[in-house]
C-alpha cells in the first residue's frame, strides 16, 4: 500500500518544483533558489568545492581548447585566455574581502607579487605558493614556484606534448591580476622546472612586466627613499 503511494507523492513534489522554477530554469537554479549571485560576497566559509568536480570541469576546458588549437603553444594560449578574466575579477573580490584597514590596492611590484603569492594562492588552492624569486636574466622578470599545482594533480602529459603545462590556466589568472592592478605584463607563462626528482610536477610561473612598469617602479623607489 505504502509502496504504491510513494511514486505518486514523488511526482507531486516534482510537479510543484517544475511550477516554481523560472521558465528559463533547469540546473542553473539550486533548490534553495539562492544562486551564487544572491549570496553575500564576504561569505567564504562554504566556498570550498570538490576537487573532483573541478578536475572534471578542467578536463572539459582542456578538451574544448584542444579541439580548436593547432599546436601546443596555441593550446596554452587558449588556457591562459580562459584564466585571464578570472584574475581580473579575483583582484577586486580579494581586496574587497581583506579587513578594511589592510584593503589596499597593491601599488608596488613586491606588494603585488606578495598578494599573488599569498592571498590569491590561499584563496584558490588553500596554501601559499612555494617560492617567489627575481629572475637572474632581467629585472623585469619574476618567478613564482608551485611544487605541485592543484590544477595538474590528475593530469599526465603524453610524451608527444611534453612541453605542455596545463597550469597555463593559472598563469592566465596571474596575468589578469597583474593587468587589473595596473602592472601591465608582457606575458605570464607556466614552465616545468627541469631536473626535479622530489617534485616531478614542479611548475614555475614566469611573469614578465613591461619596461614602463619597471621604469615607474624605479621612480617610485627614488621618490620614497
Amino acid at each position: 500500500m505504502s509502496i504504491s503511494q510513494q511514486p505518486k507523492a514523488a511526482s507531486n513534489v516534482l510537479q510543484q518544483q517544475l511550477q516554481q522554477a523560472p521558465p528559463s530554469g533547469g540546473l542553473r537554479y539550486p533548490s534553495s533558489k539562492k544562486t551564487i549571485y544572491d549570496r553575500n560576497l564576504n561569505r567564504t566559509r562554504t566556498s570550498e568545492l570538490s576537487r573532483a568536480s573541478f578536475a572534471y570541469l578542467f578536463i572539459e576546458m582542456i578538451s574544448y581548447a584542444q579541439k580548436r588549437a593547432p599546436s601546443v603553444s596555441d593550446l596554452e594560449k587558449r588556457l591562459n585566455a580562459s584564466g585571464y578574466p578570472l584574475g581580473l575579477k579575483l583582484l577586486d573580490l580579494l581586496i574587497y574581502r581583506e579587513p578594511p584597514r589592510s584593503a589596499l590596492r597593491p601599488t608596488r611590484i613586491l606588494a603585488l607579487l606578495q598578494f599573488v603569492h599569498t592571498t590569491l594562492w590561499k584563496h584558490l588552492f588553500g596554501r601559499p605558493a612555494d617560492a617567489l624569486e627575481l629572475s637572474n636574466n632581467s629585472p623585469a622578470e619574476y618567478m613564482i614556484t608551485d611544487n605541485e599545482p592543484l590544477v595538474n594533480a590528475y593530469i599526465s602529459i603524453p610524451k608527444e606534448m611534453s612541453q605542455l603545462n596545463c597550469a597555463a590556466y593559472v598563469a592566465g589568472i596571474i596575468e589578469g591580476v597583474c593587468d587589473g592592478a595596473g602592472f601591465v605584463t608582457e606575458s605570464v607563462t607556466a614552465h616545468w622546472a627541469e631536473g626535479e626528482d622530489i617534485w616531478p610536477g614542479k611548475t614555475i610561473f614566469l611573469i614578465k612586466f613591461k619596461p614602463e612598469v619597471i621604469e615607474r617602479e624605479g621612480i617610485l623607489k627614488g621618490g620614497t627613499s
Partner: peptide, 19 residues
C-alpha cells in the same frame, strides 16, 4: 583519479598515464 581524470586519456583505449 589518474586515468579517468586525465584529459589526454581516451576511454576504452590503452592506459598510458605516468601518474
Amino acid at each position: 583519479d589518474f586515468v579517468m581524470k586525465n584529459p589526454f586519456y581516451t576511454t576504452e583505449m590503452p592506459v598510458r598515464c605516468e601518474k
